[in-house]
Design a protein around this nucleic acid. Structure first.
Lengths: 123, 123
DNA sequence: ATACATGCAAAGAATTTGCAGCTTG
DNA sequence: CAAGCTGCAAATTCTTTGCATGTAT
């Protein structure tokens, strides 16, 4: 657990957003000017593999990272790109029943229009 | 609808697999040596945006493409990488009930070990 | 000390794009 | 003929990696 990794983790925990590697890098650099982009990518990958954080592939643009690796779904607004967590209870059980074997993990992204964008569109 | 696009579509419909852009390009080139990689990427993107085909982002490696855009889930074997379609009835309704608005589309990928890999592991 | 992590910069993989020329309707 | 698509290659974008040096235990 180096200073760099600790900082990356803190930044993720403090932000309510799902940041990209580069956003995390920018914030990290503001507090630790010597940190390298490669270090951020390396640590994010390590933490992801260790199951400490989650990675979220986006339809456009770079991956975003999730401070928790616990499985849950995401709501993605097709218009403004806002991303929200959503619990999806029952999904795993339902699917395990259907396929007859264990689900190791899953990624679920629901595309919709968030309340804010929906309202603006209706005018 | 150019010759090139028609060929790309045919190749996708003929294959049972979810191919990457480059796999499609290779197959296309075998039948039409002049076709360019850029053309394949361009057409795949156009067809995806037109809702004619689906795109599937993979945890490792390039995107794969789905001959149908109709929403359904995917089963991904973490060991051999095999990818299978899975119907997920009820999921959308359940989620629309929970979020109180329309689901425009969704992507669901279930990570598991396919029967084949499970068997080999147990030895 | 020793093993591992960093910073840097260059390489890599996947995808996109500018442009001149060709096709399609 | 006009609009749009192609082939080509160069450019972009995101991410990984080799290596010399620094750091933590």
């Amino acid at each position: 657990m180096t200073r760099q990794r600790r900082l990356i983790l803190e930044l993720m925990q403090q932000s309510p957003r799902h940041m990209t590697a580069d956003e995390i890098f920018a914030k990290a650099r503001a507090q630790m000017p010597s940190i390298a982009r490669g270090t951020v990518y390396r640590n994010l990958k390590l933490m992801e593999q260790a199951g400490e954080i989650g990675r979220l592939e986006m339809p456009d643009g770079p991956d975003r990272f999730d401070k928790t690796a616990a499985c849950h779904g995401h709501l993605y607004c097709d218009q403004c790109g806002e991303l929200q967590d959503i619990p999806v209870v029952g999904l795993v059980r339902e699917i395990e029943g259907a396929i007859g074997t264990e689900v190791r993990s899953y990624q679920l992204t629901i595309h919709y229009l968030c309340p804010n964008c929906r309202q603006h569109n209706s005018h």
